[in-house]
């Protein structure tokens, strides 16, 4: 679908809003993983505000919704402001993340409207998504299944069991979005066990692969729009090259940024520095 400049300006504004709110949440709950949550902001923006996902926030379990599995649960705090802004819950709840009585924890679970599955332990989302994709195919349903996974999660062996499964069963209603921020908890992935070449690895398992700049809203929108229409008989993976800690200079390109927290002054400075 063709979109004008206003559409992408709108997405840019929403990405900026999401990034700011994510930093604010980190100020409220220091247990949240800020760097990992900042790398996937544009991905969430395009999926929800770009209407790649078909959803109804007033009815989270709506039968016709596309299913979105957030496998990298720890790094999905940036979805909270998106879900609040799109009407899944009151935006005032964002001030309660991690507080007693709130339903918004440091790592999201399916008790939160808009989350499909249990998150927090890595390597589960893709396999569950395979089951959902297969179920939708058997029921001849048109809904699509999207999964967000971090690149570090690819170290889990269970992921590759699911990668093989999706390829073998031709799950072209399934799109894996890989938030390829290239950093684990303690180091760059390339220094731990190099994961590249990712496109070739998925390719030989029978997947369609596409690589984009994961912060380029236009590129993301075009790629995800195309993948949503995938009828090739092969599942699709979008390798979104991202920067962990995107938008906060003190986090970007720091191999230990996963476990770094920002204090009040740093958050203020980071928000002021956002464009």
């Amino acid at each position: 679908m063709e979109h004008d400049k206003d559409f992408f300006r709108y997405l840019k504004d929403k990405a900026l809003h999401t990034r700011k709110e994510t930093l604010n949440i980190h100020g409220i709950s220091q247990e949240t993983r800020i760097a990992s949550s900042l790398s996937c902001v544009e991905i969430f923006t395009v999926l929800y505000y770009g209407k790649i996902l078909n959803f109804k926030s007033s009815e989270p379990g709506w039968e016709n919704r596309d299913r979105f599995i957030i496998s990298k649960g720890h790094g999905a705090i940036s979805l909270y402001p998106v879900l609040a802004d799109t009407g899944y819950f009151d935006a005032l709840e964002l001030a309660n993340v991690g507080k007693e009585g709130s339903f918004l924890g440091g790592i999201p679970d399916y008790i939160i409207p808009g989350f499909e599955t249990t998150n927090g332990s890595l390597g589960h989302g893709l396999g569950v998504a395979c089951g959902i994709s297969l179920a939708l195919k058997r029921k001849k349903r048109k809904e699509k299944v999207f999964v967000l996974m971090g690149d570090g999660e690819l170290y889990e062996g269970s992921v590759w069991e699911a990668v093989m499964f999706a390829g073998r069963h031709g799950l072209d209603n399934l799109t894996l979005i890989l938030d390829n921020n290239k950093i684990c908890m303690l180091d760059y992935c390339k220094n731990i066990l190099d994961l590249e070449p990712l496109d070739k690895k998925f390719g030989v398992f029978g997947w369609n692969t596409l690589t984009v700049d994961g912060h380029d809203l236009t590129g993301l929108y075009e790629a995800l729009s195309g993948l949503k229409e995938n009828e090739t008989g092969r599942p699709g993976v979008l390798i979104a090259n991202t920067v962990k800690g995107k938008g906060v200079k003190s986090l970007e390109n720091d191999p230990l940024c996963h476990i770094k927290n920002l204090n009040e002054a740093q958050i203020k400075e980071a928000i002021e520095g956002l464009k």
């Binding site: 893709l126 396999g127 569950v128 395979c130 089951g131 179920a135 269970s158 069991e161």
Partner: peptide, 11 residues
């Protein structure tokens, strides 16, 4: 995991 996905869709 696959069984879970199928069951979440009602199977």
């Amino acid at each position: 995991n696959v069984s879970t996905g199928l069951a979440l869709e009602g199977f």
